[in-house]
Design a protein around this nucleic acid. Structure first.
Lengths: 212, 212
DNA sequence: TTGCATCCTGACCGTATGGTCAGCTTTCAG
DNA sequence: CTGAAAGCTGACCATACGGTCAGGATGCAA
């Protein structure tokens, strides 16, 4: 115990409880899926009575929506790497780094996101048709320009993006499989590093954008 | 209606009903996850009363297990491509073709498989620790030999395999996302072909195993 | 034809789950 | 200090779901 008592302010209480609930929910949704998750389990993990969850989030759907939107924000932020870059080597390297960091630090969120998409994006369909589509179109344009400028081979930009998403996301979504094939141990720092380097090397070489 | 009545034989009845149930179950599990799927939904989709499902499959778990094992078999069969090959170009090309075909023809199964792994492989843990591990180790050895023989660059075989799994599986698991970014339309024959070619080209080039 | 094994199913049951609510405690502005 | 707003929660409810079962229908071997 750090403090004997804590005279929390209202603001703090709300913020901390919402945070605890969202964190617990992310984990439970990731492990059991939306249908398999129960409010009771989330409540227990968050250390709160179930009724308290419904005080902050009216319904299971609303809580789920919050979790999914959270991870979507994080996912989109990794986009910035792309824009600041001068060429494919910088841009794609940075993007892979960022996405791999997400796979590692937000494995649960990644799984929830994957689950949401796999089940037809019932919650995020709007975002996918607006924000995601715009983001993608923008990146496709950037890649197209790189190709025009001779900075990389003429690879279909969309399929290249899918490849980046797939390879990086895989380390979160299929982390359990990777762990099992790694002797039941989660990847070490070194192994994560190797994974990143491998992806970068194969893809950058594969699109003819080798570092100078 | 094709036939007025059908004097089915017992054998046929069992086979056809099990098949119908498994097909329906695969779809429902893919769309809703294990927890979200209901026996009633599966029964409706299969065109049978719910109680009849329990006649063929005692429990929801047993039905789910059958579905997962089915797709695992298919998944493993794609392995043969690897063995018959003389070098990385043949082997990896054939494997990508096979896995992409699975992503296209068995999208539901692929999703169920992904879901199973994402949730910690509660059903398939044994298989993963035995069959899958053996298969993987064998393929790692093959790739290592290719590297020794100078047929490709020294890329970590395991991470290469993960890359192959990820890129191909992505077209099934994230098919909805891809569809949305494709203007709401599923990929055409031509687009599937392009996807395959792109993956092959980038990866084969990326590992320094260009066709002669 | 007969008898039996297989196949089928409507009706039912116990339980778990999402959600509600009345009433309590705590915070804090005035 | 005070009252209202915010925070909290045990007990409760309706429903949906997995699973059961008694008994009827059907095929099939002898």
């Amino acid at each position: 115990m750090t403090e004997p008592t804590r005279p929390m302010r209202r603001q703090d209480i709300r913020r901390e409880n919402e945070k605890a609930i969202l964190l617990a929910a992310e984990k439970v949704f990731a492990e059991a899926g939306f249908g398999g998750a129960t409010m009771q389990l989330i409540a227990d993990l968050a250390g709160l009575p179930k009724a308290n969850l419904h005080y902050y989030f009216a319904t299971k759907e609303e809580l789920y929506r919050s979790v999914v939107q959270n991870i979507f924000e994080i996912w989109l932020q990794a986009a910035n790497c792309f824009d600041a870059a001068r060429g494919p080597v910088d841009g794609i390297s940075a993007y892979i780094d960022a996405k791999m960091e997400i796979s590692r630090r937000h494995a649960d969120g990644s799984k929830v996101w994957a689950s949401e998409v796999m089940h037809g994006a019932p919650v995020l369909q709007d975002y996918m048709e607006s924000t995601l589509r715009e983001w993608t179109d923008g990146r496709v344009e950037i890649i197209r320009r790189w190709i025009e400028e001779g900075k990389m081979d003429p690879v279909d930009p969309r399929h290249l993006l899918y490849m980046l998403w797939a390879t990086t996301q895989h380390y979160a979504d299929f982390g359990h499989q990777i762990e099992t094939l790694n002797g039941g141990k989660s990847l070490s720092n070194r192994q994560w590093q190797e994974a990143k380097e491998n992806i970068k090397r194969v893809i950058l070489t594969g699109i003819g954008a080798q570092p100078a």
